[in-house]
Nucleic acid binder design. Sequence first.
DNA 1: AATTTTTTAGACAGCATTGTCCAATTAGTC
DNA 2: GACTAATTGGACAATGCTGTCTAAAAAATT
Lengths: 218, 218
Amino acid sequence: MAPTTIAPDIPLPRGHAAKRVSILEAATDVFCREGYAGANIDMIAAEAGVSRQTIYNHHGDKEKLFVAVVRALTERANAGIFATLATFPDHPADLEAELVDFAVRLNRNCICNSDGKYLRKLIEAEGRRYPELFDTWRENGPSKTWAALAARFARLAHGGYLDVDDPDVAARQFLALINADLHVSMVLGDQLGEERVREAARNAVRTFLRAYGKRKSI
Amino acid sequence: MAPTTIAPDIPLPRGHAAKRVSILEAATDVFCREGYAGANIDMIAAEAGVSRQTIYNHHGDKEKLFVAVVRALTERANAGIFATLATFPDHPADLEAELVDFAVRLNRNCICNSDGKYLRKLIEAEGRRYPELFDTWRENGPSKTWAALAARFARLAHGGYLDVDDPDVAARQFLALINADLHVSMVLGDQLGEERVREAARNAVRTFLRAYGKRKSI
DNA sequence: AATTTTTTAGACAGCATTGTCCAATTAGTC
DNA sequence: GACTAATTGGACAATGCTGTCTAAAAAATT
């Protein structure tokens, strides 16, 4: 539909574009707070500081607006994940410290940030009703993330840093441990401080390395 | 689902009670599928095989009905969790095998069953709008579960079966590992087979014991 | 069998929401 | 400054949902 894929600058009026992102932000907020059925256009218009008609001009439809919200969220979230994955410590000097740093980045930039939380909530709440929407996320969402992370762990193992039998399992368990302490806090919507995220990462990595670390003996 | 909890027979009119649970079941289903705002009474009435007025006779209000649904769900889920916690292997002959069995029970009876999935989804979707509802769950929900599980792990450590420094962390990580493989499948709503649950439990316990198991050397 | 309770179907008012239309106003462009 | 595109507020019909009311039917109780 709209060629918003890669184009850096579209010859659209500036105020127009500003309204567009303002609408999209407000819609994201309201859809996540109230759910698709619970959200109404007037709420979104008010929160965006925009007239209701403008929303219809831009997106035509409540459902189309929702799709646009999810698409923007998915793109940003995926970009964030792969950018963070690129910072994985392939040749660590201090494995534990660098894995902790990586885990903190993963949590703060992908899982605990607003994009991540919003996207997960929308997928969970409305995923069943919009399967095609969910497919898009599934395809370049968790499965690719896991595969990429598994490849990194496999490389670490190959380099003698880790003792990993099944990299896929190790990758999933790494992510699970990372979130062990934060999951409930996030469901409650608590804002978690930097120190709590670090502490969770430390706990996770310590356990992960006790399970998968190279034995220092001999 | 018959109320297989403890009560054998309650001296209420049979048809009346039957309608009541039928309504509650249908309401649970619809609320979880559509969300609170998206659910409507006619849907629930149709799915319960009951007239709309009957629902109002029984529960008076959409909101009251919702509260009743969440309350029933919470009670059943908590009962299931503590019943399962009671089967924790305190004096294991084969620690790994018994922990795997325990993990399978936990997943099948508490986390992956319909009560668990429904309750989590409702809490996530509507928890912010109904804080008091959420408080009830929080109080005898995860925090108590974690504490109880942590106590069991502490006892295992005290008995020389495990090498655990922080039982609370260990308990949370155990639960996280248990669900590492299943979490995404559950979000998608896939029905997971017995074998997949067992495999996930085996992976989790293996890693858990590599991290916290007593070293066999010397 | 008689009586009481419960259920049912339907109609109904009240309300909220979606999406459209339009005239007036504003902002951006030449 | 003139012109064009976008925005605004408001009115509007159409729709769907909640919750109430009714009289009739069904079910349970005695």
